[in-house]
Write a protein that binds this DNA or RNA. Structure first.
Length: 424
RNA sequence: GGAGGCGUCGCCUAGUCGGUCUAUGGCGCCCGCCUGCUAAGCGGGUUGAGUGUGAAAACUCUCGCGGGUUCGAAUCCCGCCGCCUCCGCCA
């Protein structure tokens, strides 16, 4: 949610952002009108309510005829107060509905464009030249099946399409990644968290996932709960309706959870293997900080992601996500795309967003310092999305014979095993 | 899932057969006094948030949450949530 004050003080700033996002500019004027109307109803209500209180005090002390007269007056006033209260509620609802349609303000420096405009900020590592090694790289599913480590067919039998079993060595690879990611997160100064995966509507809505992304979310009507698509949701809602002391900031959480995604509307896209699935496990970084520190924290999250991917010896690119593809909450977003040899291109493996105060306003999370109480900034970033990390590890480190060399840093977490080898 | 109890300002607590509660008292905290220092003692302050202002003043909201009754609700009624105890079931 955007700041209502900004709407009054600098509507042009919002207009520019709407243009960059490719969203409606007229919405700004609608919101300004609704804000004005809302403030008028509030003023009226507060005036009537003050009057009612004064009279009430007199009624309490009065007796006899005087009391009867006062009661008549106060009775009429009571109806006015109720009407005024109803007006306030209507006006507030209208205003909030309009405000919730705004995406976050696009940060300065974000490249303009849409989903197809990829701004490569940096390329790290060099893809292997498989032809020089004399073989054509297999895709991750073929490698995984040869290792008897990925079973899509039985995943489909048990749960449907886009589900899978990880088995044996590949299952063990995930456990190693989890443990490695945990150690990395600790070394970066994060507090590990294991959050609930089912959340209330307020948590899902507060993080902005019930807007345009709603069709991608699993919902359990019998219990009115949502399955989270990322630990970002419970980690953001964790401090909802709280005021955090300045001294505690910044707060760094690393949450491990399964991630559930309906992938509605992506039928046929990435249908092969475990690239786009309905469920995967993920280590997610989440930060609460002072708004003035958010840009620096965002750069740090990106550095952590780069460090993590590099340490697993995966060639990748950093993308500065274009304004039209930021999603509702992000003011700026960096994606890391890992090299996928079988596809001959880079694909998304991590993403980090600076949500500034946008998410915090919806979730009513604030901070207190010498200047008083104000909204806090939130940021998130993928540390390790297991399925996709497994894909790039299997593909980039595969050998002609179907075995996979385990990245050195991961070996201690696999009992020292240096290669994953197909069983005979 | 069944039965009962509870939910007040950071913590504890008074108030709960509706009328000022703009909520009692204690602890803690803050300021001051006093004393080589500290502690103790004494005096004062202290719910939080929102709107507002140069800063104030002022106003609104706030007794788990949401409704209802009423001129008026911490107090009465209904629904929900959370916690505790017991029973049932269970990884």
């Amino acid at each position: 949610m955007l700041d209502a004050k900004l709407l009054r003080s600098d509507p042009d700033r919002i207009r520019r952002s709407q243009v960059a996002r490719g969203d409606s500019v007229e919405l700004v004027d609608e919101a300004i009108a609704a804000d004005l109307a809302r403030r008028e109803t509030i003023a009226t209500y507060e005036r009537l309510r003050a009057e009612q209180k004064q009279l009430g005090a007199q009624v309490a002390k009065a007796a006899g005829d005087e009391k009867v007269a006062l009661l008549a007056r106060t009775k009429a006033l009571s109806d006015e107060v109720k009407a005024a209260q109803a007006s306030v509620e209507t006006a507030e609802t209208t205003f909030t509905a309009l405000m919730e349609r705004f995406g976050n303000l696009v940060a300065d420096g974000v490249p303009t464009g849409g989903e197809d405009d990829l701004y490569v900020a940096e390329t790290i590592g060099t893809p292997r030249d498989f032809s020089a090694e004399g073989f054509t790289p297999r895709d991750h599913l073929e490698i995984g099946e040869r290792l008897d480590g990925i079973d899509m067919e039985r995943g489909a039998k048990v749960s449907g399409s886009r589900f899978y079993f990880l088995k044996g060595q590949v299952a063990r690879l995930e456990f190693a990644l989890i443990q490695y990611a945990l150690d990395k997160a600790l070394s970066y100064g994060f507090t590990p968290m294991i959050p609930p995966t089912l959340v209330k509507p307020s948590a899902m809505d507060g993080t902005g996932f019930l807007g345009q992304a709603a069709q991608d979310v699993y919902y359990l009507p019998a219990d009115d709960l949502y399955l989270v698509g990322t630990a970002e949701v419970p980690l953001a809602a964790y401090h909802s309706d709280e005021i955090l002391a300045d001294a505690l900031l910044p707060i760094h959480y690393a949450g491990f959870s399964p991630a559930f995604r309906r992938e509605a509307g992506s039928h046929g896209r990435d249908a092969h293997g475990i690239f786009r699935v309905h469920w995967f496990d993920k280590f997610e970084m989440f930060v609460y900080c002072r708004p003035e520190d958010a840009v620096a924290e965002h750069e740090k999250l990106l550095e952590f992601e780069k460090d993590f991917i590099s340490s697993l010896e995966i060639p990748f690119q950093v993308l500065d996500v274009a304004s039209g593809d930021l999603g509702l909450s992000a003011a700026r977003k960096y994606d890391c795309y890992g090299w996928v040899p079988s596809q001959g291109r880079y694909r998304e493996i991590t993403s980090t967003s600076n949500c500034t105060e946008f998410q915090a306003r919806r979730l009513n999370i604030r901070m207190r310092d010498a200047a008083g109480v104000r909204p806090i900034a939130t940021l998130n970033g993928t540390l390790c999305a297991m399925a996709r990390m497994i894909i790039v590890i299997l593909e980039n480190h595969q050998q002609a014979d179907g075995s996979v060399v385990v990245p050195e840093k991961l070996r201690p977490y696999l009992g020292g095993i240096e290669t994953l080898t197909p069983p005979r």
